[in-house]
Simulated assay, not measured.
Amino acid sequence: MYQDLLFEIKGRIAVITINKPASLNALNKYVITELSEALTAANNDEQIRVIILTGSGEKAFVAGADIKEFADFDSQQAESLAREGQNKLFNKVENLSKPVIAAINGFALGGGLELAMSCHLRFASTNARLGLPEVTLGLIPGYGGTQRLPQLVGKGIANELIFSAEMVSAERAYEIGLVNRVYDSEELLDKTIEFAEKIARNSPLAIARAIEAVNCSNSREGFDKEIRFFGELFELKDKQEGVAAFLEKRKPNF
C-alpha cells in the first residue's frame, strides 16, 4: 500500500511507521506525501481512535530531512518546500481530530523533531536524542520548529536549543517539557499503545473538540471556542452516554 511506510491497526489504534532505516527514516517530499495520505486514511476510519507515529529500527524516529533534496534550491523553491510541507503534513498532524502520539525511538532531529512537535503527545525511548541543527547549515527550522518549540518549552529554552543546535537527551527533553514520558527502548511502543488505549476508551467527539480548543490556547479566541464546544457537546450522543454511565455507576460505551 505504501512504499516507505508501514500501516498497522491494533484494535482502535493505528501505528504508522516510517520505514526507511537505511537513511534513518529521513523525510523527503515522497515520505511527506505518504504520511499525509496515511494520516487522512486513519482519520477517516471510524474504528480508529488514536494514531501513533514512529520510525523503524532503534536508531531513529526521523533523523531529519533529506538535505540532498533541497541542496541546490533557490529561495523561491525553498519557501515552496517549507509551505507545502507544513500544509500537507505538519499542520495537518496538529489539527487532526484524532490524537497523534509520536513514539520517538532514537534520533529526532530537524524535520524529525518538527514532526514530533506537531503531534499532540510525545513519548521517547531512553536512547532518544532530540535537536534542531539547522543553523549549522546556515538555515533555520522550516517545518514549524521556531513556532512550536517555544510553545512547548518556553522562548528562552527554545532559543537555547535553536541557536546552539545542541542535541538533548530524552531525560533532558522530559525535564523541559519537550516530551511527555520516557521509556526503555524495548517497551516504548508497547507503553505508547497502552496509553493510546486509555485515550481510545474516552469520547472521540469530546477529544476532537478538546484538540481544537487546546490548539487555540495561545489565541484570543481560545476561551470563546472552549465555551462554544462545551455547549455543543451537550447536544451530542457521547455526552448522553457519559452522563448516563456516571449516574448508573458503569463504564461508558463510546
Rank of each mutant, 00 (worst) to 15 (best):
F107Q: 08
L27G: 13
A65H: 12
S125M: 02
I162W: 07
I211S: 08
D238C: 06
N95E: 06
K92W: 07
I211W: 03
T126Q: 09
E69M: 12
P252N: 03
N105A: 03
E166C: 04
F246A: 10
A124I: 01
F246M: 12
F90E: 00
L139A: 10
K68S: 11
P141A: 09
I32T: 09
R181C: 01
Y174S: 06
N87H: 13
S125F: 03
G57K: 06
L89C: 11
S185I: 03
G57S: 11
T146G: 11
E134C: 08
D45I: 04
D184H: 04
I101H: 07
V93H: 00
A128E: 02
I211N: 04
S97E: 14
A200R: 09
G222Y: 12
N43A: 12
V135D: 06
E235R: 12
I227A: 15
N105K: 09
A26G: 14
L236F: 12
H120P: 02
I52Q: 01
I211K: 03
G11E: 11
A158T: 14
N105W: 00
I48M: 05
R201S: 06
A116Y: 00
L96T: 07
Q77R: 13
I157P: 02
N215W: 06
I48S: 05
Y143V: 12
T136P: 00
D184P: 04
N159D: 14
A78I: 12
K249E: 15
E94C: 07
A42Y: 05
Q77S: 13
I176A: 01
A165W: 02
I32M: 15
N91T: 04
E194M: 08
V135S: 09
F254Q: 04
A245Q: 03
F223L: 15
E175N: 05
L89A: 02
R172V: 03
K10S: 09
N28E: 05
D238H: 03
S164R: 14
N215C: 15
L89H: 01
F163P: 00
F163E: 09
V153E: 00
